[in-house]
């Protein structure tokens, strides 16, 4: 039984169409991320969910009730804005109390809940500061507390980490995931950062050109991308355009035997960089091997990143161990991989 049901939503801005027949079902308590490049329609979908933009066609239901034309203030959804949109003329405590005040809750209850929320986000001693006196990460936590204090049915997060530096981002992702587990509220997050999406979400909807390309858990998206876009956008991948016939894949001079492959005709072969090894000699054990030359070698500390040329055109990205140093550029090597790890994309 899905909690949020988005059905065939279309959105036009004048002559421009921003969303094409978008449908999505989200279960209660799930942490879903809308992931996509800028202009993919993810923010539009979030604004429609929040109630700031009307749909052109389609419906949105929550727990079976049609909320498509309910104004934002009656949806009972929390929203964390990209720039946080904290009220500069109110203290941190007043910001968090705001949704309770407009709901005319009794004073005592407001004070108590605000205190509980400040504790949850560990900002108890900043209650009487103004938001602009806090750091970016602290402001973000105030925004989160404000959006959660009234027990919303759904929390929407609009690129909440985009203004923070990388180290802080990781910590806050942990914290957000923790809060999600403790409260059990349904979260919908919007981001263009695939690491963030994979770090926090139960499911990810990859969006492109106003459509949902694939919806599923991170593992499925990474190991079983539905198409070339998902394969390229989620993680790094090597894509080789070619043809397949009777279990034999051919791209230019490269020929690979892929027993058990059912597809026929034009396809792209996808291979993740960590599934490939650089070997000095052809290896045994059912692995495929392609002769190649190391074009560039980069040391990043935790691993070595190689670009290897197979023939005149194909370039392969390969992650290798860097514990014993780099294989020098110009070396002749073999790319070894398990044919099972190859994925054929139409």
């Amino acid at each position: 039984m899905s909690f949020i049901e988005i059905q065939s939503v279309n959105k036009h801005y004048g002559a421009v169409q921003a969303l094409y027949d978008v449908s999505l079902s989200i279960a209660k308590g799930e942490f879903v991320t809308l992931l996509g490049p800028s202009g993919s329609g993810k923010t539009t979908l979030l604004k429609i969910l929040a109630g700031f933009d009307p749909v052109t066609s389609g419906t949105i239901r929550m727990a079976g009730r049609d909320i498509t034309s309910v104004p934002p203030e009656r949806r009972n959804f929390g929203l964390v804005f990209q720039g946080y949109a904290l009220f500069p003329h109110m203290t941190v405590a007043d910001n968090i109390a705001y949704p309770l005040k407009v709901r005319r809750r009794p004073r005592g209850e407001i004070a108590e809940q605000v205190r509980a929320m400040l504790d949850l986000v560990q900002l108890g001693k900043f209650a009487n500061r103004k938001p602009q006196e806090l750091s970016g990460g602290q402001q973000q936590r105030v925004a989160l507390a404000r959006a959660l204090v009234f027990r919303p049915d759904l929390l929407l997060l609009d690129e909440p980490m985009s203004a923070l530096d990388k180290k802080l981002r990781f910590d806050l992702q942990e914290e957000l995931r923790d809060i999600h587990r403790r409260l059990g509220t349904t979260f919908i997050n919007v981001t263009h950062d695939q690491e963030e999406a994979m770090h926090m979400s139960d499911s990810i909807a990859v969006m492109n050109h106003g459509q949902i390309e694939q919806f599923g858990p991170a593992f499925t998206l990474y190991r079983q991308p539905a198409n070339r876009f998902v394969a390229g956008f989620v993680g790094k991948s090597n894509l080789l355009e070619g043809r397949i016939a009777q279990g034999r894949f051919q791209a230019g001079d490269i020929v690979l035997s892929l027993p058990g492959a059912a597809a026929e005709g034009r396809v792209a072969l996808m291979l993740r960089p960590e599934d490939v090894e650089l070997a000095q000699a052809p290896v045994e054990g059912g692995k495929a091997a392609l002769p190649a030359e190391v074009v560039s070698a980069t040391y990043t500390g935790d691993r070595a990143i190689y670009t290897a040329a197979v023939g005149p055109e194909a370039r392969f990205l390969v992650y290798g161990s860097a514990r014993t140093g780099l294989i020098p550029e110009g070396s002749r090597v073999h790319l070894a991989f398990d044919p099972q790890d190859c994925l054929l994309l139409r």
Binding site: Y98, P99, V102
Partner: peptide
């Protein structure tokens, strides 16, 4: 910023209350 009004609306305040507060 326009997000100030949107934030207030999303937190449950109507148009008039958003303006006043």
């Amino acid at each position: 910023p326009a997000a100030q009004n949107q934030a207030s609306r999303s937190l449950g305040a109507g148009g008039v209350e958003t303006f006043l507060r």
